[in-house]
Design a binder for these strands. Sequence first.
DNA 1: GATTTTATGTCAGTCTTGTTGACTTTCCAA
DNA 2: TTGGAAAGTCAACAAGACTGACATAAAATC
Lengths: 168, 168
Amino acid sequence: MNDGRTPGGQTLLFLTDEQLRKGIEAMFFAYRGFTADPDRILDEKGYGRAHHRAIHFISRSPGTTVNNLLSILGVTKQSLNRVLRTLVEDGLVESRVGTRDKRERHLFLTDVGEALERELSDAQRERMRVAYREAGPEAVQGFRAVLEAMMDPELRRLFNRLKDAGHE
Amino acid sequence: MNDGRTPGGQTLLFLTDEQLRKGIEAMFFAYRGFTADPDRILDEKGYGRAHHRAIHFISRSPGTTVNNLLSILGVTKQSLNRVLRTLVEDGLVESRVGTRDKRERHLFLTDVGEALERELSDAQRERMRVAYREAGPEAVQGFRAVLEAMMDPELRRLFNRLKDAGHE
DNA sequence: GATTTTATGTCAGTCTTGTTGACTTTCCAA
DNA sequence: TTGGAAAGTCAACAAGACTGACATAAAATC
């Protein structure tokens, strides 16, 4: 494949429609792989991807509010509420009224919720780890760079804020 | 960031859970961006992602059968059928009874179908092109390598068969 | 103190897209 | 030639998204 370098060393991209289409299809098929393992686990327990997403981001930012979660997930509150309600009823998520602002609900995973989060994320991380290992370290950096450049600016800011919240 | 090379030059991957989680979130947010532009166009015309996927792969392999499409898309035939029916009714897809095997239906885009396909894929390719340009040529190779490694083996074979079908 | 805004939750109804089950037509092989 | 398998269609249902209207409580503002 063309590596995009001219003889003079200048970096150019010769991107044919064909190459771009391959990238698009790669995203499509890879995303299927990406969700396959968690989907299997969720299905056994009667949950769906919506539950996984909620669990993931609550685990990521314990104590986050409903509104916060809404802006991350990009769904309506009615849609999120349905998911949260079942998770609270099933004892996977705890919803605590805010201390400063009593209108807010702060969301936490219970021990049971943590356990499911770990099961889901173990599976997904393992898939990621294997893919990274096969592709190699430089590939991983490229992967991350392209994905970040593909995000909508607003989501990209959100993503990087999450990134800083962790301690990379 | 750690580039995974030891002083001796040996390639190792130091993948913390944190780094893997970032990759997972990057996939999540990037996929939203990836589908955002086509989703907008589809919404205007009263179609959804399922229609886009069908249109994409029919355009990619004109004359493909329903069964072929099923194995690519990974849904039930009943689900695909509903989508195909509306596309045929709306005059975007033509379904021709097979000549050798009359049980088969061979699928083709009409001119109208081609036009929508172009509109959708122009938008999606543009997003891809911008992301590739921002990330740089090496990143593009890494991106593709990781995505491919993330696919289920069966889908990966399918993906590479599509790849050969085109003339890269 | 009264009013408005914000955060959350809920009910009802719709849409897309997935599912399973039952059915027809066609092909092929015993 | 008949019986099973394969390709496709129709019907009914479920998950999970959506909109819109409304309720409640708390905070913020006038």
